[in-house]
Design a protein around this nucleic acid. Structure first.
Lengths: 344, 344
DNA sequence: ATATTAAATTTACACGCGTAAAATACTTAA
DNA sequence: TTAAGTATTTTACGCGTGTAAATTTAATAT
C-alpha cells in the first residue's frame, strides 16, 4: 500500500478530519486528547505518510523533549557503556537523546556546548573533560542557560548536581584488600592523565598508604591521548625491564591501563595472579566491560553503571520537572564494589 | 567581561551595524562575504552573546548541514571506533554529526529513522541491524527520502552506496594462513548472530574449506544479544569441556567472540598460541581495538578503519554535492589485512 | 573620472508548528 | 432533560531564520 504523502500538519489535519491544534496537542501528549480522537488520529497516521517537522516543533516549544548527552570519548568502553545506559533511560522516559563525544578535545567540547545551546534541550547530562580552568568559564556560562547535570567528573559548583563515583572508596577498598592479602600496591598511572578522576585516585592512594603507615610508590608513565591500553602497555614494558617496582603488587589508576599492563606482562613472560607461582598481582579501577575477559581476569573496583546512569537520569528528569531550577547542588558519590578475580 | 545578551539575528545585525541577510549569509558560509565585513562580524561575535537558533536555521534551509550516523550498538568497540572516525570526518568537513545507536533493537532503529527523517539531514551514514526482512521496507522508504550510504552491513539495493568489508577475504586469508601453518580451523560462531556479516563469513568459510578439499566444522553456539564476549566465553567453556573439536585451530566469526574464547581457555588452563607447547590456536575477525591486548595477543583479520570511514564519509559528501542523486549504487568492499600476533 | 561588476541593503514573504482566546460541540451527572 | 464542565474547533498571531527581488553602495577596471 502506498501511503499518501502529506506535507505538513495542516494537510494531515484536513485529511484526517481533525483540527490542527488538536493534532498538535496529540503529538505533544497523546493522552491529552479524547480516546475516540486518539484512535482516529492513530488510524490516520497509519493511512497517511506524515512526519512532524522537528525544527518547526521545537522552535516554538517552550521546552523541547530533547536531552543532550556529552561524553569525553565515545570509544572509551566505560563512556560507551554509560552513554548506552543513559540513552536507554532517556528513551524510556519519552525523551530523545542526542549523544555527543568531545573526542578528547577541548575545542570539540566547546563546539558541542554551542550546538547544544542552540538545540535548546530540556536538559543535558555531561561528563566534562575537565582539564583546563579556562574551560570552566565556558561550561559555567552554559550551565546558567541550560539545566545540566554533571557526571563522572566533577567541576566544583557547576551544573545543578553531580553524580559520580567516590574515587576514595575505589582506592581504599582495593589497597586494603591488597595489603591484607599480600604486599601493599604501587600505584600505576599516567603522568598527565586525560581524566581528572585520576588525580583524585592518586591522592586517595597516597592518603590510604599514609594512614596504613606504608611507604607509597607512585609510578607515573608518559603518554598522552586516549589510547590508554597502549600507553599502559608501553609504560609497563619499560617498568618491567627496569625492574624499578618497590612492590610485587600493582594498582592501576584505571582498567584500561591495567589491560595494557597485563598485555605487557604476558609479552614479557611475567606471570600475573594471586597464587604462589605468580610474579605479580595487578588490579584496576572501573570494571571496564573488558576486564572480566583478560587473562587472568582483572581484579578491580567496579562502578555501578546502572545506579549511576539511573540516578543521573532521574536527577535530570527531576530538574526538568522543576523548571530547571534547583536550590542545592547535591553531589552524589557512589562507592565502589570490589570485584575479586584472578589477577590480584 | 560580561557580553551583552542578544536575542536574535535581527538584534545582532543592528548591534553590529550590518544587515540581517548578510549576517545570515555569513553563518551559512563565512567566506561568502567580503573580508572587511567578515572581520567586522567576527569582532561583533566576540563582543556580543549571540547564538543562532538551530531550529529556525534549519527550518528554512533547503539543505541542512547535519549528518546522521546510525550504528547498531554504540558499546561495541568496533562500532564505537567507526562512529568516532565518521564523526571526525563530518566535523572536519563542516558538518554537524548526530550519532544514534539502535541499541540492537529493530524498534529503536525504526524510531531513529523517524527522528532522522524529521531532522532532514543532508545525509545519513547507516550501519543497519539488517536482520528481519520487514525492516527492509522501512529502510527502503527512508532511503528514498534521505540521501543514505550504508556501511558495514549491506542490504541489497538500499541506499546510494555500500561501503563495507569483503568478508570472503577476511576468512580466506585467515583459513589459508592457518592451514598452511598447521591444521585447518574449525569455525566458531553464534547460531543466531546479531550481525549479518556473520552469515557471510560462515559461507566464506565453507567455500574455502571446500576449495581446499578440507572437511569443515562449524561450531554454532547458543546465546543472543550483543554481549558477544560472554557468549563466546560460555560457548567455549562448553566446547572445551565436551572436547568436540575436530581441529586444534579455531577461527572465530569475530574478535569479540574470540576474546571470550581466549578468556575461557585461560580459565580452563588451555594454552593458546602457535608454539609447540600450545594446545590450541585461536584467531578472530575485525581487529577489534582490544584484540592486541589479549593474552596471547589475537591473530586476526583487520578492517582498515580509517579507509572505511574515510570512504564512507567521502561517498556521502559526494552524494550530497550531487543533490542526493546517484545513478549507480556502487558497492565497495575492502579486503582484510591479516594481523599475525601470537594466538595463531 | 567613468563604466562595469560585485557585494550589501532593503523589503517582504515563507517555513511549519506552538499556542492563546473565543466560540462551539460534546460528555457527564444530577 | 438540563446544566455544568470539558474537549474541540476556529481564528489568528508569533517564533527566528532562509531567501528572493529590487535597489543601493562599494570595489575594480578602463
Amino acid at each position: 500500500m502506498v501511503k499518501t504523502k502529506i506535507k505538513n500538519m495542516e494537510e494531515f489535519a484536513q485529511a484526517s478530519g481533525i483540527s490542527r491544534p488538536t493534532i498538535s496537542k496529540f503529538f505533544n501528549d497523546p493522552s491529552s486528547v479524547r480516546e475516540s480522537l486518539k484512535t482516529k488520529i492513530e488510524a490516520a497516521l497509519e493511512k497517511y505518510d506524515y512526519y512532524p517537522n522537528f525544527y518547526a516543533i521545537n522552535q516554538n516549544r517552550q521546552l523541547t523533549k530533547n536531552i543532550g548527552i556529552v561524553v569525553p570519548y565515545v570509544s572509551d568502553p566505560f563512556f560507551a557503556e554509560i552513554a548506552r545506559n543513559l540513552e536507554r533511560r532517556c528513551i524510556d522516559a519519552g525523551y530523545t537523546p542526542f549523544l555527543f563525544s568531545s573526542h578528547g578535545e577541548q575545542a570539540q567540547e566547546n563546539a558541542i556546548l554551542d550546538t547544544l545551546r542552540s538545540l535548546k534541550p530540556a536538559g543535558v547530562l555531561m561528563a566534562p573533560l575537565g582539564r583546563r580552568s579556562s574551560d570552566k568559564i565556558k561550561i559555567e556560562k552554559f550551565c546558567k542557560n541550560v539545566p545540566t547535570i554533571l557526571f563522572d567528573s566533577n567541576i566544583e559548583g557547576l551544573g545543578a548536581a553531580f553524580i559520580g563515583s567516590d574515587n576514595h572508596s575505589f582506592i581504599s577498598q582495593t589497597v586494603e584488600y591488597l595489603n591484607s592479602t599480600g604486599s601493599a600496591p604501587s600505584f600505576f598511572e599516567m603522568r598527565y592523565p586525560a581524566n581528572p578522576n585520576a588525580n583524585k585516585r592518586r591522592e586517595a592512594y597516597l592518603k590510604i598508604m599514609n594512614d596504613l603507615k606504608l611507604k607509597p610508590q607512585v609510578i607515573s608513565i608518559e603518554g598522552t591521548g586516549w589510547e590508554f591500553e597502549e600507553i599502559g602497555r608501553q609504560g609497563a614494558l619499560k617498568l618491567l625491564r627496569k625492574n624499578e617496582m618497590n612492590s610485587n603488587t600493582i594498582l592501576c589508576s584505571n582498567d584500561r591501563l591495567a589491560i595494557g599492563f597485563l598485555s605487557a606482562c604476558s609479552e614479557m613472560g611475567v606471570k600475573v595472579g594471586k597464587t604462589k607461582s605468580c610474579d605479580l598481582r595487578v588490579s584496576g579501577c572501573d570494571d571496564n566491560p573488558y576486564s572480566r575477559f583478560t587473562s587472568p581476569p582483572l581484579t578491580t573496583a567496579a562502578h555501578d553503571y546502572h545506579t549511576v546512569s539511573d540516578n543521573a537520569a532521574l536527577a535530570l528528569f527531576e530538574l526538568i520537572n522543576n523548571g530547571g531550577k534547583s536550590k542545592k547542588r547535591p553531589e552524589t558519590l557512589y562507592s565502589a564494589k570490589l570485584i575479586l578475580r584472578d589477577s590480584a
